[in-house]
Amino acid sequence: CMEGDGKTLVRQIHDAYMKSFTMNKAKARLILTGKTSEPPFIIHDMDTFQLAERTLAAYMAHMVKGERLESESELRVEHVTPAVECEELQQREAEARLFHCCQSTSVETVTELTEFAKAMPDFQTLDLNDQVTLLKYAVHEALFTLLASCMNKDGLLVARGRGFITREFLKSLRRPFSDMMEPKFQFATRFNSMDLDDSDLALFVAAIICCGDRPGLVDIPVVERLQESIIQALRHHLLANHPDDTFLFPRLLQKLADLRELVTEHAQLIQEIKTLEDTSLHPLLQEIYKDMY
């Protein structure tokens, strides 16, 4: 049984989550199970991707502000090339745009996560440098947790639920892009089998953020106290919300370790893409990856 303070914390964190994120699990599941009037546009090859870029432009994060991508104009240089080479060039161009699109979505989610953290009780009373450290190390773990809500075994919802990009298509891209999403699908399949709802996820994401063992924290005890109150609230909430699944809490805590591994792998891949592909990384993401692990 949870005391009054714990219940208030659960409610405040759930409210903060619902206000901060444009997409949540309930919305995503309605779309993924075909319970909405308009089904998402399915992206399963380069042609459908390019069609989606045109039709979903308003919802694709990188096009919201009519931003033109540098790589796009650079690659548009006219020169006579054999058809095969031309096709290859188009493919590379589309892959680069897809990568930028993923980056913009990540940046958008980092912004939402920051708003969520700020709305969490007592977060803003922490030392500002500690708030930065907590976010720096948490955002990718939180991002892959939230991404699982938008995934099923066949693909991933994009463009605020207006598009669905298939797992096979992502796998068919050239290396290293093809290696980017597959580990996230594998994690999502295991994670989604726990059947968490948005109220559980809100507390789990809060627990990811308020973590006392992030490198460089100044005031560890105060972060640990906040972490402890969230973890206790999560434990009580899971018992009440999933009375038939008594091992859900320890299983969920194990996922924190899986997420750390997933982020380490992801950071290595981003480093590889940066070196091999000569592609630019958004300044916010650069800040986050710099000296991370």
Binding site: K65, S104, V110, L135, P283, L284, E287
Partner: peptide
């Protein structure tokens, strides 16, 4: 502080990083 300029900004106000 300089190393995490945008994160600082986001925490102190809600400037959209897309604009930066």
């Amino acid at each position: 502080k300089e190393k995490h300029k945008i994160l600082h900004q986001l925490l102190q106000n809600s400037t959209s990083p897309v604009d930066l």
